[in-house]
Design a binder for these strands. Structure first.
Lengths: 343, 343
DNA sequence: TTTTTTTACGCAATCGTTACCGACAACGTT
DNA sequence: AACGTTGTCGGTAACGATTGCGTAAAAAAA
């Protein structure tokens, strides 16, 4: 099966005009008589003519499309961020092409290269947890492809970035647990490559230090796939909960991780209650048992801001040399899961 | 800023060959001597040449991309279905472009038209709740655009479809509530336009009839935006719970609806406990309080099957005239929310 | 009337790629 | 010696749209 569409040529033939005349009539050029214009416009309307964006892309080397690369759309943070991205993009006349890396560096590379080849005008990227090496992105960037990072950024590439205040979000969450008189607070985080991992880890460490709680490396567990692979998280939790000295609270550093972890904890047989909190943008944290204390990011706004930066970059005449690094505040929503009293 | 990429012309110039020779060498034509081939291939590799898909699309009138139109990616069912779609598409060499209608008919039309103009080879569509009129899709379909419906289908267009067994899923869920000795079972569903609404409603009605429970129209509430607009759901619930004769159980007909509804019920002040179940593909139904009884659809498989149908249609030489309408079974997962004993 | 200007349109190049159609050697056959 | 094969390659026309340039006829100015 193939799909036939009407072209400018069909109009030209039907009206006995040249292709160029039709083209100019369509864009309302002053060189075309008003009668001809009218005839062309009417006929175009009648046969429902739509200019072929592929041909236009080839000619103008722009597509009015932006590519988005996230690890997973089935992630509350990313799906909200995407809605923010779309809200700006559509208003500015850009289309959005969403791709998922599934936390795989290889998949991310394939997606990025495909988007670039497809001719997107720019890229909105949140790195996969495997992405230690971003050289292919850097190459693309240096060839002139506008790129804006959000959430999971790379310091290797100097461009606009939009992130949450992961450090303070993490600091406050940890401090909150400390105020609740938890003494042994574990931190389950994702891949050490990621910017967010380091920032959240730093917040955690500094909060402990501030309150004179010794840092125990054995309480920090890395899950390189960020909660996507359940066995990984299972192993981390088992290691924590089967140790001689169990943690009395657990703090998770990512959306999927928080969900996976919370699920595993609840399903653990003979489980001992532990305080729990984590970064997640779920809208239903209060429906869980216990209701979840969460650190929520302004995902929608992050998507919006990143998109504004990107479009600004795309439409800039000369290479951009001054970059903005926007940091948005997180919100700590305290519920039962982090209250010692109810455990 | 603009993004420059290497073309076949650059290779031709560098190697002092004609464009056509380079093109043939790249595709391994037998007409090209092995030395020339080798030289071209090596140089192409060196400068990291990638054929321009836009030019190819223009020439071949195919893009090896399929377009997906769903109402919302922040919906457990759809994000799982999309993963199924991608798993097949990537294996078959197709890229996937995801768009959201946000339950708006207008937005859906814009997306579909853009995807068509962009030259996707086919469309995977789950209709928005507003989409009563599908004439624009029908037109496209009749012009030769392969379209496969999944989940929310249209009887106006005869093509392959993939759906869950909504009737039986709904029947069993209702019957389960009846066995739990609930007497007044309300049904909150989405737009009456949707195929799934009718099928689920029929299952509900027939289960009641089977058990000699009179059907009460006042217990059926429609939320045309399927849980996307909270006030709509709020109104439905208020109408139910403030009536003289309250329902003793509520059965929701969609993913977003189930979540929104469950949240509202929990947050209602002075609420009376009611039995609860609904269609949803959440992976964390057991973490809620009470743990959620759900009807789960094989979303991943549905996405896979729909994609297989679509690709088959795309690659078929002649117009397809025999259509498959695949129905996959749902799964009823019984947990506390539907047990009368625990209320 | 002649020259210049304006109006309104067509031609052809361009974007990157493929594919049809030849061109032209170096052979082998009669 | 004349012709046909075969192996390699180049020229060029598409695909759909835009656009700079050229130009006929009509209108205006000389």
């Amino acid at each position: 099966m193939k799909f036939e569409s009407v072209t400018i040529k069909d109009i030209a033939k039907a009206l006995n005009l040249s292709i160029s005349t039709v083209s100019r009539a369509l864009r309302g050029s002053y060189e075309i008589s008003s009668e001809t214009k009218k005839a062309v416009l009417e006929y175009a309307e009648k046969i429902n003519y739509r200019p072929n964006p592929i041909a236009l892309s080839l000619k103008e080397r722009r597509t009015r499309a932006i590519g988005v690369v996230v690890s997973e759309i089935a992630n509350n943070f990313f799906s909200q961020a995407i809605n923010g991205i779309e809200s700006i993009a559509y208003n500015r006349g850009y289309h959005v092409i969403i791709t998922q890396s599934h936390e795989s560096q290889e998949r991310e590379r394939v997606n990025v290269e495909h988007l670039a080849a497809r001719g997107v005008d720019g890229l909105l990227v949140s790195l996969s947890s495997e992405s230690a090496d971003v050289s292919y992105l850097k190459e693309l960037y240096e060839k002139g492809m506008p790129i804006v990072f959000f959430d999971r950024v790379s310091s290797e590439i100097e461009t606009h970035t939009v992130v949450a205040n992961n450090y303070w979000g993490s600091y406050h969450a940890t401090e909150h647990l400390i105020y609740q008189e938890f003494k042994r607070i574990a931190h389950i985080t994702s891949s050490p490559h990621l910017s967010i991992t380091k920032e959240r880890l730093d917040g955690y460490k500094d909060a402990l230090a501030k309150h004179n709680i010794p840092l125990r490396e054995e309480l920090i567990k890395y899950c390189p796939h960020g909660g996507m692979k359940v066995p990984e998280v299972e192993e981390a939790i088992n290691a924590l909960m089967k140790a001689k000295q169990k943690p009395d609270a657990i703090f998770c550093a990512g959306d999927r991780l928080t969900m996976t972890c919370f699920g595993l904890l609840k399903r653990m047989k003979g489980k001992k209650e532990v305080g729990f909190t984590g970064f997640t943008n779920t809208a239903v944290g209060d429906l869980f048992a216990p209701a979840l204390t969460v650190i929520s990011q302004p995902a929608f706004e992050m998507g919006q801001t990143a998109t504004e930066f990107l479009i600004q970059m795309i439409e800039s005449r000369r290479p951009v040399t001054e970059f903005q690094n926007k940091v948005l505040e997180t919100e700590l929503i305290i519920r039962e899961s982090s209250k010692k009293s109810v455990l």
